[in-house]
């Protein structure tokens, strides 16, 4: 075993759960019919008593199998699919799916691209099924659910595709339903940073925060009855 492998090993160990996504970003598009990887960013939200949610910030997201040689897809599923199986793009208030490999939306095989509506089921290859919905009329942000058994390499309850903002709150029409919370926490992208605000008093890493909080990698947001941790995945 040479030193290179050892180094890779230790890197994997350090990055633990996100080992499939920790390879440095690749420069540009691949050859041939390959697809450009969007400059999107990914976060993990570990929400106490609720679950683990992946938050994707950007305009375009690739769905595919994890890759160890290059940057993994934004939505990387342990499944027998291509590494860039399909892309989901947002154009203003519209979400579109572009199929690179065999993909169906709500039973219709998609050859090129198609508009995604809330409630659509995305089928990749034979067996992978994802649910697509836009829970809140107040926001364009979408949620991807795993309808078949295929998931990322670690347990994720769902994926948030952040458009404008995303609501974590007690109701079903919030993007992440946190039944025990009394009020909503809003996550949004501002000044190129992921930020959050809420009517309830929040503190970040133990420090009382004012109305809009910048969410950095590793910060823990605490309220009277809530707590979640934000991790940047790249």
């Amino acid at each position: 075993m040479n030193s290179g492998t050892l180094q890779l090993d230790s890197q994997h160990r350090q990055n633990r759960w996100c080992c499939d996504t920790c390879v440095p970003e690749r420069e540009t598009a691949l050859k041939g019919n390959a697809v450009a990887i969007s400059p999107s960013r990914k976060f993990m939200l570990w929400i106490d008593g609720v679950g683990a949610w992946q938050l994707c910030v950007g305009e375009s997201f690739v769905v595919g199998a994890p890759s160890f040689e290059e940057k993994s897809a934004d939505i990387a599923l342990l499944a027998d699919i291509s590494r860039k199986h399909a892309s989901i793009e947002r154009n203003g208030e519209e979400w579109r799916l572009t199929a690179h490999q065999s993909t169906a939306v709500s039973g219709r095989t998609v050859s090129q691209d198609t508009v995604l509506c809330s409630g659509d089921e995305i089928q990749l290859a034979e067996r992978v099924r994802l649910g697509f919905r836009i829970p809140s009329i107040l926001s364009t942000s979408a949620i991807i659910n795993f309808e078949s058994d295929h998931r990322p390499s670690h347990s994720v309850d769902g994926i948030i595709l952040l458009a404008d903002h995303c609501l974590l709150g007690p109701r079903k029409d919030h993007h992440v339903c946190c039944t025990q919370w009394s009020d909503v926490v809003v996550l949004f992208a501002g000044d190129g940073m992921l930020r959050c605000r809420s009517k309830v008093a929040l503190s970040v890493n133990g420090q009382v925060a004012n109305d809009s909080i910048e969410l950095k990698h590793g910060c823990v947001v605490t309220g009277e009855e809530l707590r979640f941790r934000v991790e940047q995945m790249e």
Binding site: G51, G119, I137, D157, G158, D173, S182, D183
Partner: peptide
């Protein structure tokens, strides 16, 4: 939260979408 203050979305149409798996 009082239901009158927040509009109810007519768009959440997919009944198959599983619950937010709070206590999975």
């Amino acid at each position: 939260p009082s239901p009158t203050t927040d509009p109810v979305p007519p768009r959440s149409v997919n009944p198959q979408v599983p619950l937010a798996k709070a206590e999975q």
